[in-house]
């Protein structure tokens, strides 16, 4: 009887609220950063090799698709960085009431966008 009991729906029906969305994106960005840093390291390896490899490095660098991915990667870095700082504050129990949580979330978004744009278009 007991084992026949159905499990009530969870992930599919719970509203995608800011709190959980920011949390899961922190994980996603963390995972993609660790994979991305290996790829970036490989890309840098190209000019540590022979000069003849350098033009491969340049071809890749000029590729628009590659640059787009690099841009996303920049956003990922800054999101993970700023949201990580948010988590550091929470570890001290600071800024954990709901209003501060929402405020800091929007701050993270704002700072992420601002720094990504700074890095790519103004530096």
């Amino acid at each position: 009887m007991r084992s026949n009991r159905p499990l009530s729906p969870h992930l599919s029906i719970y509203k995608k609220i800011l709190t959980s969305v920011f949390s899961i994106f922190h994980r996603f960005t963390g995972i993609s950063l660790s994979i991305g840093s290996i790829l970036i390291a490989l890309w840098f390896c190209l000019f540590a090799l022979l000069p003849s490899y350098y033009f491969v490095f340049e071809i890749i660098s000029a590729n628009i698709f590659f640059r787009f991915i690099l841009f996303i990667w920049t956003i990922t870095i800054f999101y993970h960085l700023f949201n990580g700082v948010r988590y550091l504050y929470w570890s001290f129990g600071i800024g954990m009431d709901l209003n501060s949580v929402y405020f800091s979330a929007y701050m993270v978004l704002f700072l992420t966008m601002l720094s990504s744009i700074l890095v790519w278009f103004l530096l």
Binding site: T19, S20, S23, W90, S91, G93, M96, D97, L98
Partner: peptide, 26 residues
């Protein structure tokens, strides 16, 4: 507890379990 904060968001009594857990860890 990974400080997802859904608990604080949903509490119908306006309490803050996430903060209580953070203070426990501290």
């Amino acid at each position: 507890c990974h400080s997802i904060m859904n608990c604080t968001h949903s509490c119908p009594k306006g309490l803050n379990p996430a903060k209580a857990i953070a203070d426990l860890k501290k």
